[in-house]
C-alpha cells in the first residue's frame, strides 16, 4: 500500500514523487555516513596509533587502522605513568559521588512531587534560584577552602550533589506515577519512607538508571572542579592525568631517549611520545565505550523522559 502510494504522481504538479523520495534517501545516506565517518575516524586514528609499531607512528604512516601491532606503548602507559592512581581516584569519585547524588536527588524529588506537600513552592523556588544565579567560582572556592575540603574527594563530589535539572526530571517522573498505588500503600499502613523505597522506586527504575548514568558521566568527565579543588599528585583523576600527558608528552622524550625506564628496564623502541599520548587517550576511551550499550539504552530513554515535562 505504502509502496504503491510512494510512486504515485502528485495530482497537481505531476512531478513523480519517486524522484523526490530518492533525493531525500540519497541525502540521508550520504550526509549521515559522512558525519558518522567524521565521528568514528578520529577515534580509530588514536586507537590505531596506540597499538601500532613505533617507527610507523613517528613517520606518520598510521591512519585509521593499526599496522605492526604492539602493546609495549600501552604497557609503558600502565606501568610508567600514574595511570592506576588516576583510575582509582576516578572510580572512587564516580562511585561514591553517583551514590550520594542519587540518594539526595531522590529524597529531594519525592516530597516535592507530592501536590499536597506544604512548603513545596518555596523549596522548588530555592532550587530554581540556585540554578539561575551562581555565586561565582572564586566564592565557591573560598567555601571549599574554609571547610578544609581542598585535596579531598568531598570537594570533587559536593558541586554535583544535586544537579537541579536532574532533580526536576526525577520530580516530574514521580508526579507522573499513578497516585492510586501510593494511596493503597498508605491504607496498608506504609509510611512515606517505606512507600518510597518499596513502591515508588521499583516503579521508577528507568529514570533512576538514567539519572544515575548522567551523574556518573558528570563525575567521570569532570575536569574543572577537580583541577580547582585538588593540588596533590595523589588526587589526580583520569581527566587531569590525561591532560598532563597530552601537554607534557615531551617530558617523556628525554626518558625515552635514554632507553631506560625508572626501574632500570629497557624501554621498547616501539614506545614513542606520540604513541604514549595516543595510548593514554585510548585507555581513557575504553571505559566509556565499554559502558556504551548501557548508556545508549538509558540515555535515549532519559531524553524522552526529560522532554515529557512541560
Amino acid at each position: 500500500m505504502a509502496r504503491r502510494a510512494s510512486i504515485a504522481r502528485h495530482p497537481r504538479t505531476g512531478i513523480s514523487s519517486g524522484a523526490g523520495d530518492r533525493v531525500v534517501k540519497l541525502l540521508a545516506y550520504g550526509f549521515l555516513s559522512l558525519l558518522s565517518l567524521l565521528a568514528v575516524l578520529p577515534c580509530l586514528h588514536v586507537i590505531s596509533k596506540a597499538v601500532s609499531a613505533g617507527n610507523l607512528v613517528t613517520a606518520g604512516l598510521i591512519y585509521f587502522w593499526p599496522r605492526g601491532i604492539q602493546f609495549n606503548t600501552v604497557e609503558f602507559v600502565l606501568t610508567q605513568t600514574p595511570f592506576f592512581t588516576a583510575l582509582k581516584n576516578s572510580l572512587i569519585i564516580t562511585g561514591l559521588g553517583t551514590a550520594i547524588s542519587l540518594f539526595t536527588t531522590i529524597t529531594t524529588a519525592y516530597p516535592l512531587s507530592k501536590p499536597s506537600f506544604k512548603g513545596r513552592r518555596l523549596v522548588v523556588l530555592l532550587y530554581v534560584v540556585s540554578m539561575v544565579f551562581f555565586g561565582g567560582i572564586i566564592p565557591a572556592y573560598m567555601v571549599i577552602r574554609t571547610l578544609g575540603l581542598i585535596d579531598s574527594v568531598w570537594a570533587c563530589i559536593l558541586p554535583f550533589t544535586i544537579v537541579q535539572f536532574n532533580m526536576f526530571i526525577m520530580k516530574t517522573y514521580f508526579e507522573s506515577l499513578p497516585e492510586s498505588v501510593e494511596e493503597s500503600a498508605k491504607i496498608d499502613g506504609a509510611g512515606d519512607v517505606r512507600t518510597l523505597a518499596a513502591i515508588v522506586l521499583p516503579m521508577s527504575k528507568p529514570v533512576v538508571a538514567t539519572i544515575g548514568l548522567l551523574y556518573a558521566i558528570t563525575y567521570w568527565n569532570n575536569y574543572f572542579h577537580v583541577m580547582m579543588y585538588t593540588n596533590s599528585p595523589g588526587m589526580r583523576t583520569m581527566q587531569l592525568y590525561l591532560y598532563d600527558i597530552i601537554n607534557n608528552g615531551q617530558a617523556f622524550a628525554e626518558n625515552l631517549f635514554s632507553g631506560w625506564d625508572t626501574q632500570g628496564n629497557a624501554i621498547s623502541p616501539h614506545v614513542t611520545v606520540n604513541g604514549i599520548v595516543a595510548a593514554a587517550v585510548t585507555m581513557s576511551l575504553v571505559p566509556i565505550i565499554a559502558a556504551y550499550p548501557f548508556i545508549q539504552r538509558y540515555m535515549i530513554q532519559g531524553i524522552t523522559v526529560g522532554s515529557v515535562k512541560g
Binding site: 577515534c43 591532560y243 587517550v281 576511551l285 566509556i288 540515555m299
Partner: peptide, 20 residues
C-alpha cells in the same frame, strides 16, 4: 550510535583526539 558517542567523551579526551 557513532554520531552520539562523542557526547560522552570528556573535553580532555576530545582534546587528546584532536591533538593527535
Amino acid at each position: 550510535t557513532s554520531i552520539y558517542i562523542p557526547y560522552f567523551f570528556s573535553w580532555v579526551i576530545v582534546f587528546g583526539i584532536f591533538y593527535a
